[in-house]
């Protein structure tokens, strides 16, 4: 619905991809059952980066402090994008995986349920 206003009201879109360095898009990633990390993370990533680099280069630094992280068997991990099941091709780029600016990913790691099974 339009904003009630005394004249035409148009807001500046603060978070368009064009405001980031060229070729960058934001990607959000949350780890299911691991709420020791209080919220999903926001990463500015090159759109032409292979998806596999998220797992190899981005997630270890962000999530590596959790004792479960080293136990992850990546072949069993399941992903969602925008709450829908998502099967990324690790060798293809984010763009070629159909990922756009501000997409939200989660990954589940079967058998790992956080500190003492508390989902932390």
């Amino acid at each position: 619905m339009a904003v009630a206003a005394v004249k035409e009201y148009v807001g500046e879109r603060k978070d368009v991809a064009a405001n980031l360095p060229p070729g960058t898009q934001l990607t959000y990633v949350g780890w299911i059952d691991h709420l020791m990390f209080c919220a999903p993370f926001a990463f500015p990533l090159p759109s032409d980066m292979p998806f596999g680099a998220i797992v190899e280069a981005v997630l270890p630094e962000a999530f590596g402090a959790h004792p479960d992280f080293a136990k992850i068997d990546w072949s069993t991990v399941t992903w969602t994008k925008g709450r829908q099941p998502f099967t990324p091709d690790f060798s293809k780029s984010l763009a070629d995986n159909g990922m756009k600016h501000k997409d939200s990913l989660t990954f589940s790691t079967p058998g790992l349920t956080g500190i003492k099974g508390s989902h932390s």
Partner: peptide, 10 residues
């Protein structure tokens, strides 16, 4: 009121 909140300074 999406037009208002697209301006959020996050």
């Amino acid at each position: 009121e999406p037009e208002k909140y697209v301006q959020a300074w996050l």
